[in-house]
Write a protein that binds this DNA or RNA. Structure first.
Lengths: 347, 347
DNA sequence: TTGTACGCGTTATCAA
DNA sequence: TTGATAACGCGTACAA
């Protein structure tokens, strides 16, 4: 544990007091110079800033934040950085925030609701001025969200909303999914299966609902029997799917997957078994992660730079005006046709 | 800008004082209870902690860090999160740190030396107890590094060292590269070309040096003429390479690339041109990013979980004992043979 | 075992 | 334009 260094010890970093002593001005003058405020002559500001640069003085952020009561920093809580979706979103948010004079902070919940809870409580206690959260699970930490709201702490949810009580920014897959399904129909597919983590014993949620509804709209069949639900690990989704189809002695001609990782797993397994993609199996992923493009995987993409801008804009607005009305926004995703989708080969 | 809320206003978060008033104990007692220290009876500790949980009290981190003089937090400065290499390394570091009772903080330099400079100065001023840095460029910010050292601030460099003046953790490609080159020789390749950002007008550095040396050792030829140096963008490396080879009317049978992104670009272009990989072109990448595995790209990999553990261990050691001797450590990488490398087809 | 009081480095208010 | 000074919330030394 590093001992706290006393201010007069020569070794530690310089404080505002040392800079004051060095330049001969008062603490207050130095503070005004550093923070670019008025009430100081250009000459003294110049001299103070020059000295600051020379000795490498930077204000102690803890002391500054503590005193100010705000940080000019926003935080983002994500489950992990497992796919490009997250890392690129954060990268963009950091960029946007810094252009607007904020800094940013990333915290990982590592898929643990308890850790999310602690992060929420700690970060909101003065580490950041506002928080954008992709919640790990559904209803685990709602009490904390409510508490933060009662404390007037700005909170924005992404990818999921909370009963219109908080700002939220989601992704709308309806349009892109419809385009994708239309394409499949147009090239000759009549039914489509699904591969994803949805629990088979519960009513369908999320993207699966949309798929079913859209297929119905388009007069196509959702092949429930050949769908593979409840796959826990994206990495093994492909093997699991082919195992099921082997037992059934039947295969779908087209599969919509939960995300690109799942799709790639399916794709790899198909290749391994010597199947032609898209001839014998058309595959649609989702997210457009890095690996999707070189593999020529069709996917659904949301503009992550735009998403970052929206996220920042919404949160910044809530920070500046906490009592403004709740906003529920949705970003449209687009369909990227690549060669993993195409006409089925006739037997 | 959020106005600072006064402590007595009912809306903001509770402070230690409010918790004291609520429970009827003093500020000091509450502090001791929260921090699990002695000098307090179990009964009162119990009651205070219970009340804290109920109202969701969490100590203000700025105030706490400010007072303590340390943060129990480490920081990591990376150029970006462009590849799995970085995001996974940070993810692992965060995990390791939190297991050791630290929190962690990620900052992105966005490839700007100036931004790196500011981050270095700000974060070291009391945001974190130590910093691990993957420096953006070579000698731009050395003065800051020196200054931090003079201030006794713990600093660890990764992927690059600074003249034995700072702890550093690098990656040693010698062994894995030799294995890869041996494999190429054994299956019948006699010469190897290189594709990467190295400036063609300067003496070779980094991995290229190793490649040349190892090929020489193994009695193989480094094909300088067919090598493509100075490629600025990894995404367009493949096109650039084939353009050069078209002019020369000659192609290498095996190419070592700077990293997986470069390799994938080459791979994609080869496929687009109808070439067989590895028959007509063997390709070696480096980093083992997510996209490498489904593409069956051979690559060089360093165990990122091990790397994170080493990083933390070294930095933690420097934090706890600043005057311990400098450590220069190197992690061995391993060769992953996948189907992008194989025997050349005879004409 | 408990409570009181001081100071950490900074910003901001007020008087000079 | 300047300098002195009062907080900010917390941890802790010391007094009770």
């Amino acid at each position: 544990m590093p001992k706290k260094k006393s201010a007069q010890s020569g070794s530690g970093r310089p404080t505002i007091l040392q800079l004051a002593k060095l330049t001969g001005f008062s603490q207050g003058a130095v503070s005004r110079a550093i923070n670019g405020q008025g009430g100081i002559s250009d000459a003294t500001r110049e001299r103070i800033l020059k000295a600051a640069r020379e000795i490498g003085y930077a204000p102690n952020p803890s002391a500054r934040n503590f005193k100010r009561g705000y940080t000019k920093r926003i935080g983002m809580i994500l489950p992990d950085l497992a796919n490009t979706n997250y890392s690129e979103l954060y990268e963009n948010l950091d960029q946007v925030a810094s252009e607007a004079g904020y800094s940013s902070m990333l915290a990982l919940a590592h898929r643990s609701p308890e850790r999310e809870r602690n992060l929420l409580l700690q970060l909101s206690a003065g580490e950041v001025d506002g928080l954008v959260v992709n919640p790990v699970e559904n209803l685990e930490n709602v009490d904390v969200y409510q508490k933060l709201k009662a404390w007037r702490f700005p909170l924005l949810f992404i990818y999921r909303g909370y009963e219109d009580q908080f700002d939220s920014l989601g992704v709308d897959y309806t349009f892109s999914l419809r385009k994708a399904m239309q394409y499949l129909r147009d090239v000759g597919h009549t039914s489509v299966a699904y591969l994803g983590p949805n629990r088979p014993d519960l009513p369908p949620v999320g993207k699966l609902v949309e798929v079913i509804r859209i297929l119905d709209e388009l007069g196509m069949k959702f092949d429930e029997e050949l769908s593979v639900l409840g796959v826990d690990s994206a990495a093994e989704a492909g093997q699991e799917a082919f195992r099921k189809w082997k037992v059934l002695k039947r295969r779908p001609t087209a599969v919509v997957t939960y995300n690109d990782q799942t799709a790639i797993s399916l794709f790899s397994e198909a290749k391994r078994l010597g199947l032609s993609v898209p001839g014998e199996l058309s595959i649609l992923g989702s997210d457009d992660i890095d690996a999707a493009e070189p593999l020529e995987l069709s996917t659904l993409r949301v503009d992550r730079s735009l998403m970052a801008r929206s996220v920042f804009e919404m949160l910044d607005n809530r920070i500046k005006n906490f009592d403004s009305p709740i906003r529920l926004q949705s970003l449209r995703s687009e369909f990227l046709l690549r060669s993993s989708m195409g006409p089925p080969t006739r037997k």
